[in-house]
Amino acid sequence: MGGMLPWLWHPAVWLPSGWTWESLASETSFNYPVYGDLWTYPFLLALGFIFIRYFILNTFILRPVGRLLGVTDTRPRPPPLNAPLDAVFSNYGTHPPPDLLAAAAKTGGVSVRQAERWLRQQAASCKTTDLGKFCDLGWELVYYSFYCVMGLWVLWDKAWLWDISEAFVDFPRHSMTNDLWWYYMVSLGYYYSMCVVHFFAHRRKDATQLLVHHILTIFLLTLSWICNFVRIGSLVLLVHECVDIPMQLAKMCKLAGRSDLMDPFFAVFLIIWLSTRTGLYPFWILHTTLFRAHVIANMFYPVYYIFNSMMLLLLILHIIWTYLILRIVILKFATNAIQDVRSSSDASAEEDDDDDDKNAIKKKR
Rank of each mutant, 00 (worst) to 15 (best):
S165G: 03
R204F: 08
R231Q: 15
F199T: 01
M247K: 01
L210D: 02
L141C: 09
T129W: 13
S145N: 11
Y183S: 10
I218N: 03
T222Q: 03
T217S: 13
Y147R: 07
D130T: 07
V186K: 01
M247C: 09
K127N: 06
V142S: 13
Y143K: 07
M185V: 09
L223M: 03
W156P: 07
V239D: 06
I245T: 04
F134D: 06
M247R: 04
V230H: 04
C195N: 08
S165W: 00
T222A: 12
A201S: 14
L220S: 00
V212A: 15
V239L: 03
G233D: 04
Y143H: 13
F171G: 02
M176F: 08
D244F: 15
S193V: 09
R173G: 04
I226N: 06
C195I: 15
D157K: 15
V212K: 06
L238W: 07
A201I: 00
A207D: 13
F219P: 05
I245V: 15
V149S: 01
Q209C: 12
I218G: 03
D163S: 14
F200Q: 02
V142G: 01
F199V: 11
W153A: 12
F200S: 09
H202Q: 08
S165Q: 01
Y147E: 09
S165E: 00
M247T: 08
